[in-house]
Nucleic acid binder design. Structure first.
Lengths: 353, 353
DNA sequence: CCCAGCTCTGACAACGTTGTCCAGGGCCTA
DNA sequence: TAGGCCCTGGACAACGTTGTCAGAGCTGGG
């Protein structure tokens, strides 16, 4: 060492230190009476330091409350050991488990997860994803809100591993993990048809959302498979706020030829529809896409997708990329599961055709 | 500029560039034929650049797909414009809205939110919080899992603004935002007593969790207010996994003198208890702490706390600190609300004392 | 015609860390 | 005892950005 030792008081006295007076390795080195690099070695558990020196350094670290500045470390090393997750809304119960699953995988790989909500806004998705890239996350998992992800091309080319989940990427080729929205909806609607329904309503989200379009397609396919026509007034395509869904459901359930069954396109729609049906007083069959907490108690038949499996699969794929595995990008489609709980097995009223 | 222009191909040809061949400001400067600092000025929208120069720089940026490296920026500037949130479990529906509320406030202040789950493990909470500090987050919001937060003292002294939410900090003085667990539980239990119950069970979490202890205290206070004794077998203190709660509930509901009403200490407990009661076939009164989705349809009376308000309040306090407001640390307690929906208004059976 | 004052630009250092490389000292062997 | 080797520790550069400062070019007034 070349300078007189720095004490805690010395450092606290520095007038305008940027990190609010944080000690650096240099301070630790000065206090311990060793060189800068020796401190680095101790901090990183590198070999080549005698136990005695190590103890002196460790004491200095504890005395000063030193913590390594990862920004500087990242700058030097080029890897941040962090991955980003851009999702639609953390408050949506579907994304909690997904995010948690990603976090667990990241943790197992020693990486930190940074996530943000796009609020279903394409601009905000882009802003967030690029902000994460500016932070130099090693990888990115995106639940697309928008339909054009070419803005990520420079990043991907620059080496940011990227995986899309729940919805496919737009106008770009990339790894993708999806639930089988088409097949799930088709199964669910076929289930209603098998229980005798002929007039079945579909309440889903705007078709610019890929899963919503796929579920609508599944609905139409099931109807067509059974040789049934679809009246336009049986189909509602968002928005899916409670008021919109309530209005749509009420419309379908009234009039000359009301639907006798409903298929709900996602968890939020299901919840609202259940409320409408509870007020209705007349039994109407219902199958919902996505499982919901307490659905078993309410006897709601659902098409369940495994949010945690989606997140886990995507994260594992991401880390395989980060581990250097080179393979062509692929799309993985995870299956869904019909869980009959009563509401989907209600027969149509006898006076219905 | 002093070097020959860098082209996209030049940069791609670099053998071992650490960020997977990312262009830097130097590259942009070389391609645009300007100095380094001019690029910096353009990127940051600083004045003093002629429109013509700015256009040349912007073109080079677009051509190369340049994105500023925020790690280097942070290192230089000392502020990261990011805050960390350490919570218990992102998959818990209570924390989704809380996290989302924090994110919204952060966004409004131009900051990014980094969050992680402690899984209710004190060691993991510490590991996560310190990892966030190493990333030099400007501020930290913590939902404590452990009871000793002295490990944060050096960080706080070094200028990391810190706010605790939902549970108080242990052995350290800091800003805290809480729900009124004691008052809420007392109100809920008093509600059951007002409806005629004398033997009331309490199923909560381990008392080392502050909210759990407070709710237990509220239960005991309400019972004492009414001059009622509490039998030890009426109180279950976790764990709150479904099996444990089911066993506890079944035990309290059987025997010579079963309880006629239950108070559930949190949302997970409530859900499990509702399942048990559904299987029981006999009406038992229930009040739960925390609101749950669909609780209205199931007619569950709850003590509701506002998770989003907790998050918002904490985040606002955090950013006031970051904006330089100096004031003594304080604890804010947010009120709870009793929402009667039926289950809490069931009277005891007539043969009960 | 010259210089003051402005605008625009660029050279340079610094942020805190890690990788490279070299020096010095102790120990073993011949 | 001398020479070589290994082990420990330190000096220095570099990562990509921003703040400081000074210089170049231009305009306008004296």
């Amino acid at each position: 060492m070349t300078e007189e030792p720095h004490t805690v008081a010395d450092i606290a006295r520095r007038p305008e230190h940027r990190y609010g007076n944080r000690p650096t390795m240099k301070d630790v080195a000065a206090l311990a009476g060793v060189g800068l690099k020796t401190v680095s070695r101790v901090v990183n558990g590198e070999p080549g330091v005698t136990p005695d020196t190590e103890r002196r350094v460790q004491d200095a670290i504890d005395t000063l409350g030193f913590r390594r500045n990862d920004s500087a470390r990242v700058l030097r090393k080029g890897r941040t050991a962090s991955v980003g997750l851009v999702l639609e809304d953390l408050a949506d119960p579907f994304y909690g488990p997904l995010s948690r699953a990603v976090e667990e995988v990241a943790r197992a790989h020693g990486a930190l997860l940074i996530n943000g909500s796009s609020a279903e806004d394409p601009d905000r998705e882009q802003e967030l994803a690029l902000a994460l890239c500016a932070r130099r996350v090693d990888g990115l998992i995106v639940i697309p809100a928008g339909g054009d992800h070419r803005y990520l091309e420079p990043e991907i080319r620059a080496g940011v591993a990227t995986v899309f989940v729940d919805r496919p990427a737009g106008r770009i080729e990339a790894d993708t993990v999806l639930s089988d929205s088409f097949g799930g909806a088709r199964t669910g609607v076929a289930h209603l048809i098998a229980h005798g329904h002929r007039r079945i309503g579909f309440i889903g989200d705007r078709p610019r959302i890929h899963t919503a379009a796929e579920r609508l397609r599944g609905y139409r396919a099931a109807m067509e498979d059974a040789g049934l026509d679809v009246a336009e007034e049986w189909v509602s395509l968002g928005p899916t706020d409670p008021a919109g869904v309530t209005a749509a459901a009420v419309a379908m359930l009234s009039g000359q030829e009301p639907v006798t069954a409903l298929f709900a396109g996602n968890n939020r729609v299901t919840v609202t529809v259940v409320r409408v049906l509870a007020d209705l007083g007349r039994p109407v069959a219902l199958v919902g896409f996505d499982d919901i907490e307490l659905a078993d108690l309410l006897g709601i038949t659902v098409i369940a997708q495994d949010a945690a499996a989606l997140g886990r699969t995507a994260a594992e794929r991401l880390f395989r990329r980060l581990d250097g595995v080179e393979e062509p990008s692929a799309t993985v489609v995870l299956g869904t599961r019909l869980i009959p709980r009563g509401s989907g097995e209600i027969p149509p009223p006898s006076d219905a055709v």
